[in-house]
Write a protein that binds this DNA or RNA. Structure first.
Lengths: 144, 144
DNA sequence: TTTATATTGAGATTGATTCTCAATTACAAT
DNA sequence: ATTGTAATTGAGAATCAATCTCAATATAAA
């Protein structure tokens, strides 16, 4: 089960005529090292901190590939720069984002999934991905 | 009915101890001159083209104010820069986006609004904006 | 080994957005 | 009207994430 994502990534790359280099492997491993959001700059430093290396350019390039093959998802921009999260092995979820403290609350809703299906059916639309995010103030922050 | 948005904006500004200057009025008027998405750079040139003036700085500052008072909504970033649409006088809607032909289907769902409220209540979250978009294939395009 | 192709990284570049701050404006109080 | 006070403006500088450039390097096949 472990390293399943590496297998998926390698196969995806091969199909494209690309290779799983040590930089790409380092990025992949860091991305999957724990669950949660991250941004490219994060990755850059964490990879260094672990004694591996990858340039910013490679990080941006590799994230693009990871999006393409569906191992990573782009989260809506919270402030000014992009955030990502890996999705392989995790149930899809949506987000509540606090505008004050930046906290991201994950949301799992069966009802929402059902509703989505209904809405698509009505329009005869085949959905391949969706984004649902609410911005506002979390419990703590709304109490001023 | 016309210029209703100006009344709303002025009252909002007054409450903040701010004024409806001619620059702010020019921006407001341009924003409401037609329906559809726009970006700050657009505004900058269109305002000039109409013989009015406002600096980029003022445009960005004023858009912030318009977001604050709810007259304008930020649309999810399509490419790299922010897009907006004015919402006063228009029902909120979500989008289905066809990946093949680019068609954007507007979506109005009472159920979705209700569900949103429920979800926020559960987390004690005060929602100020949301994004819900599904990407996939529209009726025509899914038939290959 | 030779050849061809993919990949990398340092640094430059881009471009949207934000910031700075001196000059200007609006308006209330005298 | 004049003065004082606070809000506002704009030109250009600064910021900073993201992208691009391109020579050097790695990889794999012939």
């Amino acid at each position: 089960m472990k390293q399943m994502e590496e297998k998926i990534f390698r196969e995806f790359l091969e199909k494209k005529g690309c290779k799983l280099t040590k930089e790409r492997a380092a990025i992949l491993s860091e991305v999957f090292s724990k669950h949660g959001h991250f941004d490219p700059e994060d990755l850059f430093f964490k990879i260094r901190a672990k004694g591996m290396k990858a340039s910013r350019a490679s990080i941006y390039r590799t994230l693009q590939l990871l999006l393409e093959c569906g191992l990573v998802e782009q989260v809506e921009r919270v402030d000014k720069h992009a955030h990502y999260e890996h999705i392989f092995g995790h149930k899809h979820h949506d987000h509540l984002i606090c505008l004050k403290c930046g906290k991201v609350i994950q949301l799992f809703s069966e009802k929402l999934s059902k509703l989505q299906e209904q809405l698509c059916k009505k329009e005869n639309f085949r959905c391949v991905s969706h984004t649902f995010e609410m911005k506002g103030y979390c419990e703590k922050c709304r109490a001023r």
